[in-house]
């Protein structure tokens, strides 16, 4: 097993985080750091963008920042 594969950037993982609480893009990127997933920065950005487009989360502004969230 790859040492860098302890966290996986999947739609299900993103869904779980966004159902729990609203998050910014930066919050999400912190959850899926490249050193934890083994993906490159570019892959992380691309995959996360695809997942967010599919999930189509609701958005709200908290402390002047766009946050994404999903209702259960």
């Amino acid at each position: 097993t790859p040492s860098s594969g302890d966290i996986q950037l999947t739609e299900e993982a993103v869904r779980r985080y966004l159902t729990r609480k609203p998050m910014t893009t930066k919050d999400l990127l912190k959850k899926f750091q490249t050193k934890k997933t083994g993906l490159s920065s570019e892959q992380t950005v691309n995959v996360l963008a695809q997942i967010l487009k599919r999930l189509n989360p609701d958005r709200k502004i908290v402390h002047d920042k766009m946050h994404f969230y999903l209702k259960e």
């Binding site: 910014t24 930066k26 912190k30 920065s41 992380t44 963008a49 967010l52 487009k53």
Partner: peptide, 20 residues
């Protein structure tokens, strides 16, 4: 580094811009 995180967040937001 935090600047790399900032760059990634900016790239991600740019990717999502059309969509948002």
């Amino acid at each position: 580094s935090s600047s790399e995180a900032d760059e990634m967040a900016a790239a991600l937001e740019a990717e999502l811009n059309d969509f948002i």
